[in-house]
Simulated scan of single mutants.
Amino acid sequence: MKNSVLATFAAVAMASTLATPSLAADEVNIYSYRQPFLIEPLLEAFTKETGIKANVIFASKGLEARIKAEGENTPADLLLSTNVGRLESAKQQGITQPVVSDTLSKNIPAHFRDEGNEWFGLTTRARVIYASKERVAQDSITYEELADPKWKGRLCTRSGQHDYSIGLFSSIVAHKGKEEAKVWLEGVKANLARRPTGNDRAQVKAIFAGECDIALGNTYYMGKMQTNDKEVEQKEWANSVRILFPNTNDRGTHVNISGMLLTKYAPNKGNAIKLMEFLSSANAQQIYAEGNFEYPVLSDVEPSELVKSWGRFKADDLQLNRIAEARQTASELVDIVDFDAGAE
């Protein structure tokens, strides 16, 4: 049966131009939503340090379903993912197992890992406000303030149902409750300059073009624009805004994570845990954070100089499990207020 399943998986992987990881005592197999340029330097460093070969499949969707379908015959030991929603979804689908590790407990703060140790954060990105340097004078802001009528016709954002938006809205639900979050979301909608559209970079472009004065976005997109030598116009967009870290003077700015989990039937469990511990180490955290302009979860490791130039901030330390649990409610509220229709 096992050979049959692996043969089928190999055919699917070849059809999608992905390599099939192998099973061996000195190897570890990874399924990754994170891009090759981020992951490959880390895996090379891990292999150099331990002698354990790391095999990896990269994909943009469907990895949880693949692991679930493979069941006990899965070759996957680890899943590397891009936000807490996906990590929590994998846990709810029953494809994870807890990891007991003093190293992971020491390196990764409690609010950046699952309460049952079934997923762990590796890097963080803050959900911030991009503000026009020319048209916004204030140097601090709160998420609550985004519903203030003074911003009417001045706010841009991407779809309310996007993972990044749902992450932020979920944090509002977790902090304020469903009813207060609904009122807030209605206020934010009323202030939209246009229907929610585009990605985070598109919001900065809209500020540059004068379509809005403030926008929601993730910190790391600023780094991607500031260093984009292929599309130099993005450097102009980035230069037109500055980053404001909401609520940094009270509960803290909402952050999401990239993270990892051990699959339920990991065939190379010991090697997988070694890789997880390595990824939480200072050396790996430095490589990981600098590669995508993100913040390390290991407090002893500094962000890159470019990231530090955006300023210091206090991160919301609410346990991410609580935020993940509010995602369904947040998604329902987006539909209830018809957020993506824009302001009336």
Rank of each mutant, 00 (worst) to 15 (best):
V301A: 09
F208K: 11
E325M: 11
A147I: 12
L42E: 04
E344S: 12
S22V: 15
H162E: 14
L38F: 04
F37V: 02
K189Q: 12
V12Q: 11
D316I: 13
L275Q: 00
E233C: 07
N191E: 07
E179V: 09
F245Q: 00
E302H: 13
G71L: 01
A45E: 11
L216D: 04
Q203T: 11
M260G: 00
L122M: 14
T17Q: 15
L318D: 04
F37A: 10
G217K: 08
A69D: 01
R201S: 15
Q138R: 15
T103L: 04
P41S: 06
D163R: 12
E231M: 14
G311E: 09
D148H: 09
S240G: 04
I172M: 14
A15H: 13
L42P: 03
A45G: 01
R66N: 05
F293M: 07
E115P: 01
G85H: 05
K106Y: 08
A215I: 10
A45T: 08
F37D: 01
L42M: 10
L244N: 00
A15K: 12
A131F: 09
I39Q: 10
K205A: 13
L42K: 04
F112Q: 06
T157D: 07
E294K: 01
W237Y: 14
Q328K: 14
L261Y: 14
D250Q: 03
S132E: 07
I129S: 03
Y220V: 03
V183W: 00
G270C: 04
M14W: 06
V136R: 09
F58D: 02
L104E: 00
I67D: 03
Y221T: 09
A181M: 10
I52P: 09
G291D: 05
W119G: 03
L122A: 05
L155A: 10
H111L: 06
T47P: 04
Y130W: 12
A324H: 05
Q319E: 10
A343E: 06
V28M: 10
E49D: 14
F278W: 02
M260R: 01
K189V: 08
T253E: 02
L168R: 00
N199I: 14
A174L: 13
A190I: 06
I243Y: 02
K269C: 00
G51K: 06
N55M: 05
T197K: 12
A282I: 04
K308N: 07
E325N: 08
D316Q: 10
L87V: 03
W119C: 05
L262K: 01
F120L: 09
K150Q: 14
R251S: 09
N107Q: 10
N218P: 08
C212L: 06
Q226S: 12
V100P: 00
K182T: 11
I287G: 05
R201W: 14
L6A: 05
R135G: 07
R158Q: 15
G311V: 06
L155N: 11
T96H: 01
F293C: 05
S89W: 09
E44Q: 15
D229N: 13
D335P: 02
E144C: 05
